[in-house]
Amino acid sequence: MIACIGAGVIGGGWAAYFLARGHDVTAWDPAPDAGDRLRTIVEAARPALNSLGFPDEAWGGLTVAGSLAEAVADAEFVQESAPEDLDLKRRLLADLAALTGPGTIVASSTSGFPMSDMATLAEDPTRLVVGHPFNPPYLIPLVEVVGGSATSPDVVEAAAAFYRRLGKSVIEMDREVPGFVANRLQEALWREALHMVANGEATVEQIDASITEGPGLRWPVHGPCRTFHLAGGEGGMAHMLDHFGPSLLAPWTRLEAPELTPELRNAMVEGTATDRSFGELVAERDRAVIAIRRAVEGTRSANAGRPGPSGRSWSSDEPPAPTR
């Protein structure tokens, strides 16, 4: 059984994913409406997961517990997805470490805090590890796994293996990096976008189109490094660096975040305003991501029959056997 602690967007997305993979899930969140909110998130994710080959009859059962202790009493794996508040994370992870047995891994969905900073109050921090997903966890394969200074290396390996068995694409990090890998890259792009809007250099619509109609079409197949390798032609990365290296000194990018003035905030809000509901946008995103994943996996399969980055097909009709 898997325990999901936190029933927000991330915690609910994790719960939906674990359920679809055949696991029973017990969830807990202190909010009085947590159960209803969680079931709403799970039901919203169901069509996408059904489409990926996980029919309703294969799903595990969902239980909403009345207390933290009840939620983790029989848990073999705990996924913590509480708000990004360091003091809260410290207290909660210490409680989770105390309430679970020596064979239970406690993974945090934190998007920025190193485990070394979050585990300071735990009597047994050896079982605490970061399992950082990308939103929505039920659809995006990536999970970044990294331990803290007191985490057992065996726990890091076991957590990575657990996620892989469930079909996730895992980056098992060798060291703690503030913000992790994907978030840092995403944040650099985001800061540059904010600068462009703040300086009147581009609109929100133009910025989004520059990615969806440009480099974003290449990234599902090749990441930024391989993309620039191809930009070097037959000479590859070496030619690209030798030819374009001097331009790296050009003052094109500004990695310092701009001041979030009321004007910039309003421009971003107005630029992303739409008459479509949140649910409609989520459904559109999910359909598109599924189509992209299937298209990319089809290309990989045609290329010498190689599996996806998780070691298995993302769009397989047969889900892996659950690990209970």
Score class of each variant (00 low, 15 high):
Gly148Lys: 00
His132Lys: 04
Gly311Pro: 10
Leu142Glu: 02
Ala257Gly: 01
Ile292Phe: 00
Arg226Glu: 15
His239Cys: 12
Ile207Trp: 07
Arg191Val: 10
Leu128Cys: 09
Leu142Gly: 04
Pro114Ile: 03
Pro178Phe: 02
Leu93Lys: 04
Ser315Leu: 12
Gly216Ala: 06
Ala16Asn: 03
Ser210Arg: 08
Pro319Lys: 09
Gln186Lys: 09
Ala97Val: 09
Asp242Val: 10
Val177Lys: 04
Thr100His: 08
Ala94Lys: 06
Thr100Asp: 12
Val129Ser: 07
Arg226Gly: 07
Gly103His: 08
Ala295Leu: 14
Ala231Cys: 13
Thr272Pro: 00
Gly66Pro: 08
Gly22Arg: 08
Arg265Ala: 04
Ser111Arg: 05
Ala159Tyr: 03
Ala231Lys: 05
His239Thr: 15
Asp74Val: 02
Ala122Ile: 05
Ile2Thr: 12
Leu230Trp: 11
Leu68Ile: 04
His243Asp: 13
Ala188Met: 02
Pro307Arg: 12
Val78Leu: 01
Arg39Val: 05
Asn50Val: 12
Glu205Cys: 00
Gly66Cys: 06
Gly179Gln: 03
Ala69Pro: 06
Gly236Trp: 09
Gly298Met: 05
Pro30Ile: 07
Gly35Tyr: 07
Arg293Ser: 14
Val64Ala: 06
Glu263Val: 01
Gly179Asp: 07
Ser108Thr: 11
Arg37Lys: 11
Glu297Met: 07
Ser149Phe: 03
His229Lys: 03
Val204Tyr: 01
Arg276Val: 00
Ser277Lys: 00
Gly298Pro: 09
Asp87Glu: 15
Thr63Glu: 13
Pro133Cys: 03
Ala250Gly: 13
Ser149Ala: 15
Val177Gly: 03
Ala198Leu: 01
Arg226Asn: 13
Val155Ile: 11
Ala161Glu: 14
Tyr163Trp: 15
Pro125Val: 06
Glu263Asn: 00
Gly148Ala: 03
Asp74Tyr: 08
Tyr163Lys: 04
Val170Ala: 07
Met1Glu: 14
Gly298Gln: 02
Glu284Phe: 11
Gly167Thr: 09
Trp314Ser: 10
Asp87Phe: 01
Gly308Leu: 11
Arg294Ile: 00
Phe113Glu: 07
Gly223Trp: 02
Glu43Thr: 10
His229Asn: 13
Gly8Ser: 06
Glu80Val: 05
Val170Ser: 08
Pro320Cys: 04
Leu281Phe: 00
Val130Phe: 04
Glu205Ala: 12
Gly305Phe: 11
Glu76Asp: 14
Ala250Leu: 12
Pro178Ile: 06
Ala31Glu: 11
Gly103Asp: 13
Gly167Pro: 08
Arg265Glu: 12
Asp117Gln: 14
Ala119Ser: 15
Leu255Val: 10
Leu62Asn: 05
Arg265His: 06
Tyr17Glu: 09
Glu187Asp: 05
Glu176Ser: 05
Gly271Ala: 01
Glu57Ile: 10
Ala231Arg: 09
Ala73Thr: 05
Gln79Val: 04
Arg276Gln: 12
Ala122Pro: 06
Ala188Phe: 01
Val177Pro: 03
Leu189Lys: 00
Met196Asn: 01
Arg312Cys: 14
Met118Asp: 09
Glu172Thr: 15
Ala34Cys: 08
Val130Asp: 04
Phe18Ala: 11
Asp174Cys: 07
Lys168Asp: 03
Val9Ser: 15
Glu280Gly: 01
Pro258Val: 05
Gly103Met: 05
Asp286Gln: 03
Leu128Ser: 09
Pro133His: 01
Trp190Ile: 10
Asn266His: 09
Ala119Val: 07
